[in-house]
Computed example of a mutant assay.
Amino acid sequence: MTSALSGVRVLEIAHYIAGPQCCQILADHGAEVVKVEPPDGEMGRRAQPVHDGESLYFAANNRTKRSIALDLRSEPGKAVLHDLIGWADVLVTNYANGVPDKLGFGFDEVHRINPRTVVVHVTGFGRTGPYSSWVAYDGIIQAMSGLADMTGEPDGAPTIAGPFVADNITGMQAAMAAMLGLLARERTGRGQLIDVGMLDSMFPLLAHHVSVAAAGIDEPRRWGSSLPTNYSGLYPTADGWVYLAPITPKMWESFSARLGHPEWAERERAEAGWRVREREQIDAEVVAWTRARGKADVVAVLQADGVVCGPVQSVADLVSDPQVRERGIAVRLPLRDGKHATVPGPALRLTGTPAREPQRPPQLGEHTDEVLRQLGYSPERIESLRRATGGAS
């Protein structure tokens, strides 16, 4: 079976995470992605962590692509770029505002060459506004988006999430933008510029907290691992931690009975919100119960009772989790010289047009000749470009 985006041609001029992750999602689902890199490679190739000489950072964001090395400041490089734009259905970049125009792939130039190309431009703060010239990294966006301020213990400092949340969510939004642009092109026959800001991409995560703050009802604040409106949270066990969420009346009744306190269910029925108001008293009993058991035992017992719960897992735990193995979420990705790396695989399961088998990340410029031949370049012209200073390599 073909994948959903088979036949779609994507030109990636991007680095680090947000742009490459967007294009990796498209590649997973069948798009032909050509990654344009400077002669010394995009910066993600040198990013830590590096294992056995391979950047795992790069591997996690660049599978199933082809690489062409071009000096976009040179005339030969610009000529090849123009031909690639003529070939592309989608162009994705996360270079800073102004850089695409300087290097010859700004929106106006792209649409002069190919009016059907959908251009997805990812930046920290979008193409307009007082911060549009600011450079942003993941931590900056987490800090400015409200996420850090709402994360952590109530009496603790704001906390940046461990994973690169802003980068990866922006990559997902950009992938959706590319597909929406392609759908719109089916109706209009023309591509368009899609302005994707990292701060914009994070804003929807705040959901009702935005409404609360805008209405002046309350200032969203750090709650640690507990919900301020219901009974849930992290609890220690004999060998780790579990997250418990006996939120519905039926779950609370089962939970109360399991802990030997059926009166808790009665109190909650009589006084809605009692368990939240008396959380400190209840927590003392719950912690005594969980600490006397292993986390697997706690989860097994409460799941059998119909109570929502789960173990706190490290990333290493998750990689070996039977659910992850069964679903194939972790992919063993081939690298060069017979090496492999385990990376997150495609998250979506399309039953009629499944994601394709992942291919190793490309070596720098590995497909330059192949891509040029596809564009119709003769062997003589390819050799001439190779010899030209600043040409294709």
Rank of each mutant, 00 (worst) to 15 (best):
L5W: 10
G7F: 01
V8Q: 12
R9S: 09
E12S: 12
I13D: 13
I13W: 01
I17F: 02
G19Q: 06
P20I: 03
Q21N: 14
Q21L: 14
Q24V: 00
G30F: 03
V33R: 14
V33P: 13
Q48H: 13
H51L: 15
H51G: 05
D52L: 10
D52F: 00
N61Y: 13
R63P: 07
R66G: 00
R66E: 03
S67D: 03
L70C: 06
R73C: 09
A79L: 11
L81H: 10
L81Y: 02
I85Y: 00
Y95N: 12
N97S: 09
G98W: 02
V99E: 08
D101S: 13
K102C: 00
F107A: 15
D108K: 14
V110C: 07
N114D: 00
R116C: 09
V120F: 07
H121A: 11
S132N: 14
Y137D: 12
I141T: 09
I141Y: 10
M144C: 10
M144E: 15
L147P: 08
T151S: 15
T151P: 08
P154T: 03
A157C: 06
P163L: 04
A166Q: 02
A166R: 01
Q173S: 11
A174Y: 04
A175C: 09
M176W: 14
R187L: 03
R187M: 00
I194C: 08
D195W: 02
V196F: 01
D200Y: 05
M202R: 03
F203L: 15
A207W: 06
G216C: 06
I217K: 10
I217R: 12
D218I: 02
D218M: 05
D218E: 15
P220I: 11
S226T: 13
S226M: 10
L227T: 11
Y231P: 02
Y235I: 00
T237M: 02
W241Y: 13
I247L: 10
F255S: 10
R258V: 15
L259M: 12
H261M: 00
E266R: 02
E268Q: 07
E271M: 07
G273W: 03
R275W: 09
E278T: 13
R279E: 01
R279K: 11
Q281M: 12
Q281T: 13
E285S: 14
A288Q: 14
W289M: 02
K295S: 05
A300R: 15
A300P: 05
Q303R: 15
D317I: 01
L318S: 15
R325W: 01
E326Y: 09
V331Q: 12
R332H: 12
P334Y: 03
G338Y: 01
K339D: 08
H340V: 12
V343S: 07
L348R: 13
R349M: 01
G352L: 01
R356E: 11
P358H: 06
G365F: 12
E370Y: 05
L372V: 06
S378F: 01
P379R: 08
I382C: 09
I382T: 02
E383H: 07
S384D: 13
R386A: 15
R387S: 10
